[in-house]
Design a protein around this nucleic acid. Structure first.
Lengths: 107, 107
DNA sequence: GCCTATACCTAGATTGCCTAGGTATGGGAC
DNA sequence: GTCCCATACCTAGGCAATCTAGGTATAGGC
């Protein structure tokens, strides 16, 4: 098992991070690392395919930006993506509550 | 994706449920279903292999019980299993906090 | 002109769990 | 008294998520 182990929440994490403003892949990795309190260290090999999948499904849109530096693909949340984010966040809250319920009963 | 989607927390759920007292496989499924507020419906095909794995790693011990009815394999948490439960619970709390951190920043 | 950092990409392997079967026993219907 | 269903256990194989381990390209420091 890898060091971060996102346990099925990769899409949620990416959508939520994009909810804070458009960004390119590398920046998203940094953003998630930061906001998770350094607990999540996503790998590029996980993030890029996930972003492509989210774009294919219409949750995010991308454009190429050449701000002087090298090529960058900047992703932004679409309207459908905002809906999807809300749906997944609720799903996560339900799952977390379910685990808390099972854990809480033991203590 | 199945209907319950335990997202890598199957072992934790089983250990936590056994923390509330020894039980056999079928009863564990019912216990988790109940304590999760009916949100988690584990399948036998997930639970039994997981219990065997936990027994092989020393976290649980089993004995056959024939209380009048058909054969039943009753599982109980070992001392090592209690340590493992604490470790995994802490791991879960860390992960949940990380996700909250990423989600919270968006709102 | 080379090395490093930034940035992006993909194929293939691994892992974890579910699907879909199967066995066995006991009790109620009839 | 036998058929069916519920309880209880088990396994092989498949599938989906994501990680590993490579690769490409550009810009800037030295």
């Amino acid at each position: 098992m890898g060091r971060s182990a996102v346990n099925g929440q990769l899409d949620l994490l990416l959508l939520a991070s994009l909810g804070a403003g458009e960004a390119h892949g590398y920046a998203l990795i940094a953003r998630i690392h930061e906001r998770s309190g350094s607990r999540l260290e996503l790998q590029e090999g996980s993030v890029y395919p996930a972003l492509h999948k989210l774009e294919a499904s219409g949750s995010v849109a991308s454009r190429w930006a050449d701000d002087g530096g090298g090529r960058r693909r900047v992703y932004a949340l679409t309207t459908a993506g905002q809906t999807e984010l809300a749906r997944r966040a609720e799903e996560w809250n339900g799952f977390a509550a379910a685990v808390r319920g099972v854990l809480g009963a033991a203590s």
